[in-house]
């Protein structure tokens, strides 16, 4: 199971990297978002993907799931969500003010 998951994560990283290397700002943001999902899956996978019950008293299961990666994941998702939202807003504002969403054109320093 972990092996399949690793392949999925690898694909997500590949797609994300490809998108980040493109020139349009929106694609770059989508790329960071996809890499973020890959990272989240990676955290989950590194905790071990075993079948088991909830780690609570009263559940007399033989094997228990590790709750910590899920807690980490939740925090990471929230942070990723917030930064992506901020990034989207900023890039929209930049597009309105600068009139371009091509990072190649964002390079020049002389237009002030």
């Amino acid at each position: 199971m972990e092996t399949y998951m690793s392949i999925v994560i690898g694909i997500l990283f590949t797609v994300g990297t490809y998108l980040i290397l493109s020139k349009t700002l929106l694609r770059i943001i989508l790329g960071t978002s996809i890499i973020g999902h890959g990272v989240n899956l990676l955290i989950l996978t590194m905790g071990g993907l075993k079948k088991g019950g909830a780690p609570l008293l009263g559940f007399n299961e033989l094997s228990l799931n590790d709750p910590l990666p899920q807690a980490l994941l939740l925090t990471a998702i929230v942070i990723n969500f917030a930064t992506t939202a901020l990034f989207l807003v900023l890039s929209y504002r930049a597009y309105k003010v600068l009139g371009k969403d091509d990072v190649e054109q964002l390079k020049d320093h002389d237009d002030e």
Binding site: I35, M46, L68, T83
Partner: peptide, 24 residues
Amino acid sequence: SIKYILINMISSFLFLIAVAYLYG
């Protein structure tokens, strides 16, 4: 700010990857 956010988001992802490996 766009460049700054992008570079820091990527480094945050790398940080999370490293944390995941450490935990694993």
